[in-house]
Structure formats: C-alpha cells, structure tokens
C-alpha cells in the first residue's frame, strides 16, 4: 500500500544562513540514490523550499518541504533509513526548527518519528493511478528500468 508524506517545516533562525546551508546540502542528495534504491520503498521524493521571506532583499525561503510517496508503514522501514542516512538526517535537522532536539536521530528514533509526524500535513485530496503497486512489484515487472 502506498502512503504519502507531506512534511513542511520552518527553517530555524537565523533563517538566511540556515536556508543557504540547506540548499547546499540538498545538492548532495544525488549521491544517496543507491541507498534509496537499496531500501526500495520510495516511489518519489522531492524537496523544495516554500514561503519566500519578503522582508529579505536576498532570495531566502522560510520553510523546507519534503513530499514523498512510499510503500508500507512509516515505522516499518524508518530504522533502515536511519541506519543508512543518519548523518544526512542529522545535518538537515541542524537547520530546522526544533531539529536539534532529535539529533542524533539513530539514538532518538521515537522522538524523530514524532517530529516527522508533527510536521506532516494531511493532503486535501490525492489521486493514485495504481495505489496498491509497490516499488518492488514495479521493478519486478520492469527489470530493465532499474
């Protein structure tokens, strides 16, 4: 079964500095491709910045968003993500509001899960063409796409 995450969190103060740091960090995400392939539960994941800071003369945003479609319960595989990308999570959280309190994530898994829940917005509506197909099933049927 596919699930959605709509995680929207304020960037910690000082916002401009943290925004820049986050922007840089997100550039490195391509290097994590293989890890996400290996865990194999995420259909799509995208990070974006929201809410431009209108008071700033530079381009600065005040919120970070992560939208994903993934298979299974959040709790079932969150440990695996943490095993593989603990450092990345810690690095991101450093710049997010309230994030310091759940670092290091691998030792604060319950708090981290609650943190993600807290900033997960319920969508008003969603459409799924194939709500029951998993990443694994799709890859099994189309091995050449891997």
């Amino acid at each position: 079964m596919q699930n959605l995450l709509n995680f929207i969190v304020p960037i910690a103060a000082p916002v401009e500095e943290n925004y820049k740091a986050l922007k840089e960090l997100l550039q490195t995400l391509d290097g994590h491709r293989e890890i996400f392939d290996e865990i194999g539960t995420v259909h799509f994941a995208r990070f974006l910045f929201l809410e431009k800071d209108t008071t700033s003369t530079n381009e600065v945003y005040t919120q970070l968003a992560l939208f994903t479609v993934y298979d299974g319960d959040f709790e079932t595989y969150i440990d695996d993500f943490v095993v593989k990308v603990n450092d990345l999570f810690n690095a991101l959280l450093k710049h997010l509001e309230g994030g310091e309190a759940v670092i290091p994530v691998n030792k604060n898994l319950t708090a981290f899960t609650e943190y993600v829940r807290k900033y997960d917005r319920k969508e008003e509506h969603s459409y799924r063409a194939y709500p029951n197909l998993t990443v694994q099933e799709i890859k099994a049927k189309f091995p050449t796409e891997n």
């Binding site: 392939d37 290996e38 865990i39 194999g40 298979d71 440990d79 695996d80 095993v83 990443v135 694994q136």
Partner: peptide, 11 residues
C-alpha cells in the same frame, strides 16, 4: 540481497 526487497537485510 537488500536490493531485491523492501528495506535492509543487514539490520
């Protein structure tokens, strides 16, 4: 092999 299933095997 973790790459053929959901999640990791090593854990």
């Amino acid at each position: 092999n973790s790459d053929q299933i959901q999640g990791l095997v090593e854990t």
